[in-house]
């Protein structure tokens, strides 16, 4: 792994339990440049959580390798936001300091817990789902990670808190150059925030690259039904005599169609809807 790569997988595979079970992740190959905000998307069961847990060092790969920063330099927030229920919020942050000596930044952590509508004496088990998310994020960012792994981080938040926390997350990334990988179902949230995309389906990487390049490589076209060769069709629909298609173009798109660059949402939905997404 070079210095500019924050996370790299080589033929990574993970199978839970015995040989009878299927692969949760298979033949994953990608390299995430440092400093990117990466969206990890895919349908349920695609292997997103498994990939994040492997990156966090919580699981051993069944095959292949994954290179991530050492434990001290990464932070991970699991989907269920695990916290010790009987510790108060203040104790939880103190725990962050005790378990990350020499790295812990209390100011950052407090900036996130403030505005959550709870005092620092509150016990974790008395917090609402959104408040838990806040504390879990505070614990992760207070550690000053180089790589931040977030599994469905915003799912429990109301739109206002989501916007505020996403802002804090982006501000932190802007200030420290933190690489962020977040899995999410909320496409609009990803649209402005992420500049890198990793699409998983059935345990395999279907799309991997910078959002800008991926969008530029695809074309959304509408018009009469005609042969789309040489372009790779990601998804096409016909309504009467009208064709709507998302293609990965080979050279300029010439034909009787109206063309447009797809939005991130167009691209994701098209790939998610087709089971055989075009491999990146």
């Amino acid at each position: 792994m070079t210095k500019d790569t924050a996370l790299e997988a080589r033929l990574l595979g993970k199978r839970y339990g015995g040989r009878t079970r299927g692969w949760a992740l298979r033949e994953c190959d990608f390299a995430l440049p440092a400093g990117r905000i990466c969206a990890l998307v895919g349908p349920n069961g695609a292997g997103k959580s498994t990939l994040l847990a492997l990156a966090a060092g919580l699981l051993r790969p069944t095959e292949g390798t994954i290179h991530a920063p050492a434990r001290e330099h990464l932070a991970y927030v699991a989907q269920d936001k695990p916290l010790h229920p009987r510790l108060s919020v203040a104790d939880t942050l103190r725990m962050g300091r005790e378990l990350n000596p020499g790295r812990w930044d209390d100011t950052v952590a407090r900036r996130i817990t403030e505005g959550g509508g709870f005092s620092s004496d509150t016990l974790v088990r008395e917090l609402s789902g959104g408040q838990r998310t806040r504390v879990a994020l505070a614990l992760a960012l207070g550690k000053r990670p180089e790589l931040l792994l977030l599994d469905e981080p915003m799912a429990d938040l109301d739109p206002l808190a989501r916007h505020q926390l996403m802002g804090l997350l982006m501000a932190d990334a802007a200030e420290h150059g933190t690489t962020v990988v977040m899995s999410s179902h909320i496409l609009t949230e990803l649209e402005g925030a992420c500049d890198h995309l990793l699409l998983l389906h059935d345990g395999k990487v279907r799309l991997d690259g910078s959002v800008e390049e991926l969008l530029a490589a695809h074309t959304l076209l509408t018009g009469p039904i005609a042969d789309l060769a040489p372009h790779t069709v990601v998804e096409s629909r016909t309504t009467g005599r009208q064709l709507t298609a998302l293609v990965r173009h080979e050279g300029p798109v010439e034909g009787p169609w109206d063309t447009a660059e797809p939005s991130l949402e167009d691209l994701l939905l098209a790939h998610l809807r087709t089971t055989e997404g075009a491999p990146a």
């Binding site: 919580l58 434990r71 990464l74 991970y76 699991a78 695990p82 229920p85 378990l99 790295r103 550690k143």
Partner: peptide, 14 residues
Amino acid sequence: ESGTYKLSLTQSVS
């Protein structure tokens, strides 16, 4: 059981 190991095992402590 509660999943807090995911928190404990991803801190700077081995």
